[in-house]
């Protein structure tokens, strides 16, 4: 399988084994995700397959419950605010870092990436204690600030990657032809790096929408987000309504992922 012509028989066997192993690992990667989908459509409240009878009762439960609806709204608002803030800050920073004159690049890059590295509980507890001093725990503002810090590395990375293939002479040409810097940015640079910026924004949105631990510390019942609601539910007693919520989150991830894939493909062309 997928071997050059000079391969020996034992090599062929070996290769087949390796490919079979890799395929089973890939199945191990993907199967657990899709197990939750049929379970969420089951009429029975158990988590066994095959499903005996399909129904939408858990979705009816989910959409009919004010707590879940409130949680979705909270997540959406926090994620949109985080996306706007993180995309703006991250894109600006990436524009600076990508310039050849940027000082202490390695050091500053290490700082900007560090929110991806620091254990999430440390960020959560630190934010809880620190923002508490200013009355920002159990507020949406506090949650958005912490989420933005977590989301900016993704924007910095995607926009920096796009800028590495961007022809800076285009901006220079615009400037030399008399465009004011803002026009040069909005009409020349930004349209060219837009796929990277949008990718970063999608990452930022997903980071905030899916985040549990910081939200667990920074929110009270009123600002409770969808993942926090799910987490508490699983901790209490896992029930099929959570499967419906998980399936919807999975669907959202697939949509965001597809958007991202389309953007990258356009960029490669």
């Amino acid at each position: 399988m997928w071997l050059p012509s000079y391969a020996t028989p034992s090599e062929r066997i070996m290769r087949t084994l390796v490919v079979a192993f890799a395929v089973s690992v890939l199945l191990f990667l993907i199967a657990p995700l899709f197990i939750i989908v049929p379970l969420s459509f089951s009429k029975d409240p158990f988590f066994t397959l095959p499903v005996r009878e399909y129904s939408l009762r858990w979705y009816a439960d989910f959409f009919g419950n004010a707590r879940w609806m409130n949680a979705i709204a909270n997540s959406a608002v926090a994620a949109v605010m985080t996306t706007i803030l993180a995309t703006t800050l991250g894109t600006l920073a990436a524009l600076g870092i990508s310039r050849p004159d940027f000082p202490a690049r390695r050091l500053i890059m290490a700082l900007l990436i560090s929110p991806m590295i620091v254990p999430i509980v440390i960020v959560a507890v630190g934010s809880y204690l620190f923002f508490g001093q200013f009355g920002l725990t159990n507020t949406r503002t506090g949650l958005v600030l912490a989420h933005t810090a977590l989301a900016t590395p993704f924007v910095v990375i995607t926009v920096t990657a796009t800028l590495s293939t961007y022809e800076t002479n285009l901006t220079r040409a615009a400037l030399s032809l008399g465009a004011p810097p803002s026009a040069a940015f909005f009409r020349v640079t930004l349209p060219n790096i837009l796929p990277g910026v949008i990718s970063g924004a999608i990452f930022a949105f997903a980071t905030s929408f899916d985040e549990v631990v910081v939200a667990l510390f920074m929110t009270a019942a009123e600002q409770r987000t969808l993942p926090v609601q799910m987490f508490s539910g699983i901790r209490d007693q896992i029930n099929p309504t959570i499967m419906a919520a998980a399936t919807l989150l999975l669907a959202l991830s697939i949509i965001l992922f597809a958007m991202l894939a389309l953007l990258t493909r356009r960029r490669v062309k």
Partner: peptide
Amino acid sequence: ARRAALSLALPLIVFLVVAFVAPILYL
């Protein structure tokens, strides 16, 4: 040129110092 490049990254650096580094230092 160095200052101009840095000033673009400055808002994010300041933001991270306040919203990310300060909480960790507080910890």
